[in-house]
Nucleic acid binder design. Structure first.
Lengths: 333, 333
DNA sequence: TTCCAGTCTGTGAACGCTCCCAGAAACATT
DNA sequence: AATGTTTCTGGGAGCGTTCACAGACTGGAA
């Protein structure tokens, strides 16, 4: 295999010096039109491609960004969120010729690897996905002073790590209001884990609307899985048999709730109205199809990347971005 | 911010030369126990981390692998396959301190970027995801002689790009046989796109079992989406109203078929048995829950990565890996 | 003793790029 | 004509590694 052409070869082919080629490459000032054209032609002729390693070695910038996936439990997040964000991030970063490196931060070993990678200066920024409250990684990032943003708030670090997210709280209000408007009187809720922003915010939105009617008795917690939705619904039904609606903080859990209700002989939405959250792909396939809250996943991803790029470019402190949700009415409520 | 320690600093701290430190780092032969210990200690003390750029510059190896996502249509693949493979790959590669870079190859611009990246020598190998028949990228890869494997066969290039995949054909046979054994006489099928391995192989498996009874009349094509499943089912029903079973090549399309059947007043499985494929998360949430074929997604991903690493390590030509599927009986058949 | 093989270490030379500085060339101003 | 200012160019130095080589030091065999 022939050796790849270097900047020297291009310089020789164009009849100029390395310096000039480098200036063209980084479109610096002070290159004559003639030299510029000659270099461009030489680049095309030789098929030259810059060697990022050599460049990074001197510039101390890597031209890449790490996306850290925190996923303590293996299966819990079958989240389409990931795919969407990965896709969006890849595209947007690619537009600027920045590449996306994916790393896991499941256990301490993983985390150590991430830290080593970052301390090694191999990334210009970090994109945090579903990072949990108290994750030690966040403190490390702080001490490294490396640009970092999160997709969804990092609990307890809202003012440290900028983020973009859907308006979970308002979304929950929308659904709860809708249930109230449809004449439901005894509205329960199944929340997500209380150490996730979605878990907390969606419960708060629910409580915002219901006020003191949101009694402890009408609240159950799940862990986003379908199974947890099933059992939470069962507990709710046992405790408050006469409930006539339930707001479930995720579609997957709502699917679980639906099957518990069916098993208990409750008709949906006649006896019990069910509201979901996410507008994920399961929402349309359940029976009956779920009335739910749509999150603008792609826009959230887009905004997250934009924040990160701004940070890398040295923009001062940036503000979190909160994007609106939308009620999608189907048949379950 | 203090400058990061280099190999020189470690050498100084350990009282040895750069060469010796480098030897320890790459655990070369011929390092005295004393020197080894001193270097290890110095590394710990200084918090030294190798600079991969400098290393790659001289070794011509990058320590990273690119995963190329081909996705002509934006939404079609909400595939959990992606998440699983990304996760598995990250983990397995991470074990060897190789990092995973994600790139899109949706349009020509994307593709060009990928090629430039690879030609730039920034990756030691390529992992192809859902690459379609005739993708020009494949030829480029060939000409670059860069190690490449695919997750799922690349049609027409089965002998060029090694791959790991589920046994689609046998899986389709399992399902078809099952339907026959349950006494179904008029069995139709909804296939995936005929330019994907899943589309082709699953139809072949179906035909293997049914022989000449698999008439053109009983075959319809979808594009993996739920909507396409709905309309394909409608066409089937119109053409052959007395069918008593349908094997649908994906769960998502099966969910679509289910709603068409319900709308047409057919009971499932009493009037029409429905078999899906994938055992994806929707399978359990449909009504009735889908009898389907489980693919060992994680194992496929694992095998794909293994193949790639073998190739990178310079193992000779490697054989494709085909992993067994399993029938999962629920209520739809 | 001499010699050799094996073990261990230090150093110069790359790797391919950007940065910086010195200086040439072109043009404008006194 | 002399001077200053701007535009443009070339080349040395250095980024942090690995690699090859030369040399030093061991311990044993001749």
């Amino acid at each position: 295999m022939a050796k790849r052409p270097t900047i020297h070869d291009v310089a020789a082919a164009a009849g100029v010096s390395r310096g000039t080629v480098s200036r063209v490459l980084n479109d610096d000032r002070y290159v004559s039109p003639a030299a510029h054209a000659a270099v461009r032609r030489a680049i095309a002729e030789t098929g030259y491609i810059v060697n990022r390693n050599a460049r990074s070695l001197v510039t101390q910038r890597s031209g890449s960004v790490v996306m850290v996936l925190s996923e303590p439990h293996e299966k819990v997040f079958e989240d389409p969120n990931y795919s969407t964000t990965i896709r969006t991030a890849t595209r947007r970063l690619g537009d600027r010729d920045v590449s996306l490196v994916i790393m896991l931060a499941g256990d301490d070993g993983d985390r150590e690897r991430v830290v080593r990678y970052l301390r090694g200066g191999h990334a210009d920024g970090v994109l945090l996905m579903s990072t949990h409250a108290g994750d030690p990684l966040v403190d490390e990032l702080e001490s490294m002073r490396i640009p970092a943003v999160a997709c969804g708030a990092v609990i307890g670090k809202e003012n440290v790590i900028p983020y973009a997210a859907a308006d979970d709280r308002e979304g929950a209000r929308q659904m709860t209001r809708y249930l109230v408007e449809r004449g439901r009187r005894k509205i329960a809720t199944i929340t997500g884990p209380m150490d996730t922003p979605g878990g907390i915010q969606r419960l708060e939105g629910f409580a915002d609307v219901l006020g003191r009617k949101a009694s402890k008795k009408l609240i159950e917690h799940g862990d986003w899985t379908q199974l947890s939705g099933e059992s939470a619904m069962a507990r709710l039904l046992e405790r408050t048999p006469d409930l006539d609606a339930v707001f479930v903080a995720s579609d997957l859990m709502a699917a679980g709730a639906l099957s518990t209700l069916r098993a208990a002989g409750r008709r949906v939405p006649d006896d019990v109205a069910v509201g979901g959250f996410d507008d994920s792909s399961v929402a349309a396939t359940t029976h009956p199809p779920l009335t739910t809250i749509r999150q603008p996943l792609a826009e959230v991803a887009e905004a997250t990347v934009r924040l990160l790029l701004a940070l890398i470019d040295g923009a001062g402190p940036v503000e979190p971005v909160i994007l609106p949700t939308r009620l999608v009415v189907r048949e379950s409520a």
